[in-house]
Amino acid sequence: MAQQTILVVEDEYGSAEVLQLVLEIEGYRVLLASNGREALDLMAQHRPDLVLTDFMMPIMSGAQLGAALRERPATSPIAIVMMSAAEESVVRRQFRDYNAFLRKPFSVEALLPVVRKLVSTPRLTGT
């Protein structure tokens, strides 16, 4: 089975590093981007199985990234996990079409089941 790829989009260096470490230990290949724009640029060459994105970031926010991914047929099926220190209701006012929400700070125990479930379940269009 091919190694699954997760794109972590996070402007906070420390958080991104820890997520990369944890996910690589779990056997995933991890790509890092520090904002939505960088993530879209990376996705021109890579097709991740899951996008794990922060909500508040410079240049392009997680909500804008999510909307851009859903707009494009090539990226529309990719599962999105939104992460934020803000309440989910705040996030949903800007973008609702994500697959899971993780309220920061979260534990590895909370993260991994969500990731495992989403990368093993192909996203159905429109869900």
Binding site: D11, E12, Y13, G14, S34, F55, M56, M57, P58, S61, A85, A86, E87, V90, Q94
Partner: peptide, 19 residues
């Protein structure tokens, strides 16, 4: 006031740009 985030207060990190 959590309702002020992110519409009126926006938090970002620029550590990567600094680095």
């Amino acid at each position: 006031d959590p309702s002020a985030i992110p519409a009126r207060i926006y938090y970002i990190s620029a550590y990567r740009e600094l680095e």
